[in-house]
Design a protein around this nucleic acid. Structure first.
Length: 371
DNA sequence: CCCCCCCC
């Protein structure tokens, strides 16, 4: 009986507050009150509404267009709560969790008393929750905060969970909850930096590849401590993406996770023919040097000195201008007309007079071979 | 939350 299913589904969200019998009684009262003008399902919704429960959504439907949302999901990740001081001197607590259902995952931020539930391990991975909160564009994308007017209840049911594993080619700027299985292609140095508040931080980059492409991953602080080697297959969880000088990169901060995996990943380098290059995209290109212009120094906006060298390369489809920036400019000292060049992650931009120029910068890799 | 963006 379909109606009964619908009603039970609505009741699921109320079960921590009233018994099923009480609920059915309230539904009947509602029907009577409406003079028989509404059916059981509608009456159930009205009762739920009267009890302060909003229309329930699937996690995949939650967007910044909503203000307040209610949904049910399974806790798939919990982080240790952090303490902070409020201006009035009191100590606040905040805990981040990831909650998932069969349509997706979302970050749920719990404050104070709710965050304490994580501390005492009452809220842990696998628990099913009914959540009402407000949608916020957080630092790492969309999140739901359960504040004063929100609520969180434990419920006794199960939820199918589909943890989405992304492919590198699917990653666009502004995504959160990014999970990828990939192969480590490249590992950069760990750099230390000072924040405005005087504290110290660490950051490093790796390049990750899968069968759809390659992407730069920025590791922050403790994530830089992971012992990684080229060819390692890793699984990254709960990353977020941002755009940096025109290219999308994935960030992993304290909310993210890196784990080594024994699974296979077939990374294959996808090379693009020069004729297929269009602006504002990243490419891997192979070609022969047909022209070399001496490297030049120039003054940047901040007064410091920059270096650039321009060359031209060709393959069997076309030729293209290439700008070698910074340290890459020194490469012109060892290349000649006829040198074979392989560029990974070059970035095509509009050059002068309608041409396309392939930029080789600090995020690119370039190698040469003399025939 | 870091550092490079810029030439002919």
């Amino acid at each position: 009986m379909k109606t009964m299913e619908d009603i039970l589904q609505i009741y699921e969200r109320l079960q921590s507050r009233i018994t099923l019998d009480e609920f059915k009684k309230m539904v009947q009262e509602k029907i009577d009150l409406m003079g028989g003008l509404c059916d059981e399902k509608t009456a159930s919704k009205l009762v739920a509404h009267d009890l302060g429960i909003l229309d329930m959504m699937k996690i995949g439907e939650i967007s910044l267009d909503q203000k307040d949302v209610s949904f049910m999901g399974k806790v798939t990740q919990v982080e240790a709560p952090h303490e902070f001081s409020r201006d009035d001197g009191s100590i606040g607590r905040v805990a981040n969790t990831i909650v998932s259902d069969e349509t997706g995952s979302i970050r749920v931020v719990l404050w104070d008393e709710l965050a304490d539930l994580v501390k005492v391990n009452e809220l842990s991975a696998g628990k099913i929750l009914n959540i009402s909160g407000y949608v916020k564009d957080g630092y790492a994308g969309i999140e739901v905060n359960v504040g004063r007017n929100g609520s969180m209840e434990f419920i006794e049911t199960d939820v199918d969970v589909k943890i989405k594993t992304h492919k590198i080619s699917d990653i666009a700027s502004g995504m959160s909850g990014i999970n990828i299985l990939g192969k480590v292609l490249n590992i950069g140095e760990i750099r230390r930096f000072s924040r405005k508040d005087g504290t110290e931080g660490f950051v490093s980059n790796i390049t990750l590849g899968d069968e759809t492409g390659r992407i730069r991953v920025v590791l922050w602080n403790d994530r830089t401590k992971e012992k990684l080697a080229p060819e390692d297959v890793i699984e990254i969880t709960n990353g977020y993406s941002r755009e940096n000088y025109g290219r999308t990169e994935i960030h992993l901060d304290r909310h993210g996770k890196i784990e080594k995996s024994s699974r296979e990943v077939s990374y294959c380098e996808h090379m693009t023919k020069i004729a297929d290059i269009s602006i504002n995209e990243s490419y891997n290109v192979m070609g022969t040097v047909t022209e070399v212009v001496e490297k030049r120094e120039f003054t940047k906006g901040d007064g410091s000195v920059g270096k650039v060298a321009n060359i031209r390369i060709s393959d069997d489809t076309d030729g293209i201008q290439v700008a070698l920036w910074g340290e890459n400019a020194d490469l012109v000292d060892q290349i000649n007309i006829g040198t074979q060049i392989k560029i990974m992650d070059g970035y095509a931009k509009a050059g002068w007079s309608d041409s396309i120029e392939l930029n080789v910068d600090w995020r690119s890799e370039i190698s040469t071979k003399d025939l």
